[in-house]
Design a protein around this nucleic acid. Structure first.
Length: 589
DNA sequence: GCCGTTTTCGGCCCGACTGTTTTCAGTCG
């Protein structure tokens, strides 16, 4: 197995740490940190980029780091990166995983207390704290000793739990806090910010901001840290506070006055990478950005800060198009905003139908059945103002049926659909398993009774890249296939993506006019946003599917739209924004 | 060590909070 982006990012960050502790030029340290960030957020495998000889083209990786990585990938013994890393005890990198412990503190503790075993570093540090040894170190005290023990406990605790929340969970949690905050009379406007506003698939912390007068700030902060579900207060200042909720999740709150709401919204929405790009851009025009506004850096003049009530005004002042939060990830959005070429991204109201709904119709499926019948589902589709939907249950199990049984079941379903009285056009479809050899779990003879099929992988996820690619390409060759369902098979924080040559698969899908699904099921969000962007750039068709197994889940479409937006998808990139007429043409009906 | 619509040299994001200090260093987002 080749090293993952996560592993390479960790190595680069560790080298940055080693440089920091050995007193290297601080900009060299930053360069390695930047390279680490870049690799971590890359949309392709850094290993693949290296293999194709394009390492140097990656933003933030220059000639030096390129060469070091080359050496590392070639598995050269005693490679430069490894050599740099081992200058610092491995216990330092381990200890740094605890929040609030950075390079300096970790190194000091490890060195002074002679902690050498990586596997027991946390236990050993806690033991030392018990003997009051840390408080005696220079630069440390009673309080910091206590904080270090707490930080270790938080880290160890977090290890056992899910690290990040699924988007919908974080969203509902934030709504509860907002409701609570509104009970305080000094609280004005209140907004969800950070990764939640950017609609990232998984959310670490909940970030909130409140409009309030500075002299009410204290009251608001006090109210916030009294939130009933709080188990501890991690920090509290004049304008911001952090609480830890019973599930171990952090919630941050910032108070800001109305005049600066725009710059605050911009700052606090992030991403960090986006804000850095913004500040770098501003600096070229002699401006300095912060959450408080835009500062003119002209040395001769008196310092002047411009405030902004709205985010739009903030971006406009800098000569930039307003950038939707979903694409503020520090890729090329600032450049594009400068040129005025940020596209209008697809919106929830553009969606005209849903191709992937599991009904309760008993097709005697291989996997789970939906819980609601055609009638309820079509009613919901009407409420959502859809023009069309497709009932796409899992294929009938193969082991329990003869070919003719399967055909009869599909015909029966077709008949039942015909009987429906609704303004919504309903297609007869199935979600068919892609078997390990690339054949489909449905007899060919059954295909003609279906309007189209979705194909998906539901077993044998671990396969080598070559075989997996062949498997999918073979499955795509069936003419009834119109959607490749949850292409990567990932389950957020449960199962990794499958390995496949996506360039080949995207090319083949495009050639065959097959849409790649953006499955909106909260655990999936698959395609992932970064791959959506690749697909969009390549000109692939995409289908946003709810994958609903119950009526209410049809509303999950919203999260699929968010993924599409994060992948820079425009309305015309998404097949199910089309009119019924166009869809029928696409389906060859 | 990286990078380029004022630059192949000379820059490199900004502020808050905390603890240990008595003006600052470390860490975080």
């Amino acid at each position: 197995m080749h090293p993952t982006n996560k592993e390479i990012a960790h190595i680069l960050r560790s080298v940055a740490t080693a440089y920091e502790l050995t007193g290297a030029n601080r900009f060299r340290i930053i360069a390695y940190q930047n390279a680490s960030d870049t690799v971590e957020h890359l949309t392709q495998e850094i290993f693949d980029i290296w293999q194709s000889g394009n390492l140097g083209r990656v933003d933030g990786i220059g000639p030096n780091i390129s060469q070091h990585l080359d050496e590392y990938f070639k598995k050269t013994k005693g490679s430069y990166l490894e050599k740099q890393m081992t200058k610092i005890p491995a216990t330092v990198y381990e200890l740094m995983k605890a929040p609030g412990i950075g390079p300096k503190k970790a190194f000091k503790i490890v060195k002074e207390l002679e902690i050498i075993h990586v596997s027991t570093v946390f236990k050993d540090v806690k033991k030392a704290a018990k003997k009051n040894k840390i408080a005696q170190l220079e630069g440390f005290g009673e309080k910091s000793q206590e904080d270090i023990v707490k930080a270790i406990d938080i880290y160890l605790n977090r290890q056992q739990k899910e690290e990040r929340m699924l988007l919908p969970i974080a969203y509902s949690l934030s709504q509860k806090i907002i409701e609570y905050m509104k009970k305080n009379t000094y609280v004005g406007k209140i907004e969800v910010l950070g990764s939640l506003r950017r609609m990232v698939a998984t959310i670490g912390d909940i970030d909130l901001a409140v409009v309030g007068k500075p002299y009410h700030s204290k009251d608001i902060i006090e109210h916030f840290i009294s939130y009933p579900d709080t188990i501890s207060v991690e920090g509290k200042g004049n304008t911001k506070a952090t609480i830890i909720l019973s599930g171990g999740k952090h919630a941050d709150l910032r108070v800001i006055d109305k005049e600066r709401f725009g710059s605050m919204l911009q700052y606090f929405t992030g991403s960090k990478a986006h804000n850095i790009k913004m500040r770098e851009y501003a600096l070229k025009n002699d401006y300095s950005l912060s959450e408080y506004g835009i500062k003119e850096k002209k040395k001769s003049k008196r310092e002047r800060i411009h405030s902004f009530q709205s985010e739009e005004a903030f971006y406009t002042f800098l000569g930039l198009q307003w950038i939707p939060p979903e694409i503020r990830e520090g890729t090329d959005e600032v450049e594009r905003a400068q040129k005025g070429t940020i596209p209008r991204l697809v919106e929830p109201k553009d969606i005209k139908g849903d191709f992937h709904i599991h009904s309760s119709f008993n097709i005697e499926p291989s996997h789970d059945r939906g819980s609601d019948d055609f009638r309820k589902l079509t009613k919901k589709a009407e409420d959502l103002k859809y023009s069309y939907i497709a009932f796409s249950e899992h294929n009938p199990s193969q082991s329990n049926h003869k070919e003719q049984d399967i055909i009869n079941l599909i015909k029966k379903k077709q008949e039942a659909i015909k009987q429906l009285k609704t303004s919504v056009t309903c297609f007869n479809s199935l979600e068919v398993d892609i078997l390990p050899d690339g054949s489909l779990a449905l007899p060919d003879a059954a295909l003609k009774y279906l309007d189209f099929i979705i194909i998906s992988i539901h077993s044998v996820f671990r396969m080598n890249k070559n075989d997996m690619t062949k498997r999918i390409l073979k499955a795509l060759s069936c003419p009834k296939v119109k959607v490749l369902g949850h292409p990567t098979g990932r389950l957020l924080s449960k199962r990794e993506e499958i390995e496949a040559d996506w360039t080949m698969i995207f090319t083949e899908s495009k050639k065959r006019n097959i849409a790649l699904a953006i499955d909106a099921w909260p655990d999936r969000l698959d395609l992932p946003d970064s791959m959506v962007r690749l697909a969009v750039d390549k000109g692939n068709l995409l289908a946003i599917d709810s994958d609903a197994h119950a009526v209410d889940q049809m509303e999950n479409m919203l999260y699929g739209v968010s993924v599409a937006r994060r992948g820079w998808a425009k309305k015309h990139d998404i097949i199910n924004t089309n009119s019924l007429k166009n869809i029928q043409k696409w389906l060859n009906l």
